[in-house]
Amino acid sequence: MDYTFNTTLAAPATGSYHELYEIASLNPKLSFLEKLWWTHYAYWDNDIIATGIITFLAHEILYFSRCIPWIIADAFPNLFHRFKIQDTKAPPSAREQWNCVKYILAIHFIVELPLIVLFHPMMEFFGLQYSLPFPNLKTLAIQTVIFFFVEDTYHYWLHRAFHWGPLYRAVHRVHHQYAAPFGLTAEYASPWETMLLGFGTIGPPLVLGWCTGEVHLMTVLVWVALRQFQAIDAHSGYDFPWSLRRIFPLWGGSDWHDDHHRYFRGNYSSSFKHWDVLMGTVAGPRGKKMKKSE
């Protein structure tokens, strides 16, 4: 990493996070987050380790913190029952949730952590940036929207293939253990499914980086965080009046993906509705009603 971004900062010597942050603060052009970013890479002085730590910690902290609201909702059914999609099903027990946490942690450490360690060399090979400054908000937003639509297309066709008998039995049936999903089950999947669907998340930034050389690691972190939030919310089992799908009709939302788990087939997309509508794979009574109206 270039430790001398537009400044007189010297290459870092060994020091604590606090000492290195004080050095970064000498550059008035750096934002607070950019100072922390510079400090982190300077402290480790090993870009592979620094990228691995920031990527893995961001994934773990954001995943489990986003699950907390849904754990709370399941713990207080009297307050939130009216928003429950499958309202005849009992909320998951504490034991079920704990078993889910243990399985997901195993997947994260055994499957995802080694891939995250390899991410930095892959990122450099495909031309992704990680030096300062961060990309501007317009660039970050446009690229993130592109990633959402590309990933959704990839997810639709792969997920649909997962429901073919042999692939379902070998790969996908783990994820369908819960017919009434809850937030933690977003990444409850077999190792093979984790890796294959994970490529749909990380592939678009790598390809765009290879083609343009203008994709930054910060954009990737924001994209992955938003994709995590979307997946967790889609598996939450709750549909609130302020849910995004009520504002943005193309958005699938939790009611859309909940129907996939309830009826088993259809609604294969991750974030949007258009592929299921175009291909005639809308799940449940909603899909039957659409076919009758054609």
Rank of each mutant, 00 (worst) to 15 (best):
W70A: 10
H261R: 01
H108N: 14
D152P: 11
W275R: 01
A186N: 01
K29P: 10
L105R: 04
R173N: 06
Q129P: 01
K84C: 11
P91F: 05
Y43V: 03
L26M: 08
F80M: 10
H235M: 06
T14L: 07
F76I: 15
L208I: 15
T201H: 14
V101K: 01
E124L: 12
F162Q: 11
H40R: 06
A106P: 00
R95C: 05
S271Y: 14
V101T: 06
Q129Y: 04
Q230Y: 12
P285L: 06
F119Y: 13
W37L: 12
T8G: 13
Q86H: 04
T144P: 00
I104K: 00
L140N: 10
K292C: 04
Q143E: 14
D259H: 09
P12T: 04
H235K: 04
I49T: 10
V117G: 01
A189H: 04
M290K: 07
E193G: 04
G198T: 08
L278Q: 01
L57A: 11
L79G: 09
H261A: 01
Y130C: 06
S269E: 12
A13I: 03
F240Y: 15
N46Q: 09
K289T: 13
K289D: 10
M1Y: 14
A75P: 00
E112H: 00
W210A: 07
R82M: 10
K35N: 13
I116W: 00
H40L: 12
P205Q: 03
E60V: 09
G52Q: 09
F199E: 08
S269A: 14
G52T: 14
I116P: 02
A161K: 07
N27D: 11
D258N: 15
W44C: 03
F199I: 15
V111D: 05
L30W: 06
A24H: 07
A234P: 03
D152E: 11
V111Q: 05
F148H: 12
S271E: 07
P241C: 13
R169Q: 12
Q129E: 13
H40Q: 13
L26E: 13
L250K: 00
K288C: 00
W192Y: 13
S190P: 03
V117F: 15
W223Q: 02
N6W: 03
H261L: 03
R160C: 09
W70L: 10
A231E: 09
W70N: 10
A90V: 04
D47S: 14
N267G: 04
W98N: 08
M123K: 02
I232L: 02
F64N: 02
P204M: 09
E214K: 12
L226T: 05
Q97C: 08
G15S: 00
A234V: 01
Y43R: 12
T14A: 13
H81Y: 07
P133E: 13
F76P: 05
A179N: 11
I146S: 04
G52D: 08
G213L: 03
K29D: 15
L221K: 07
V215Q: 07
M279T: 09
C67W: 05
L217H: 03
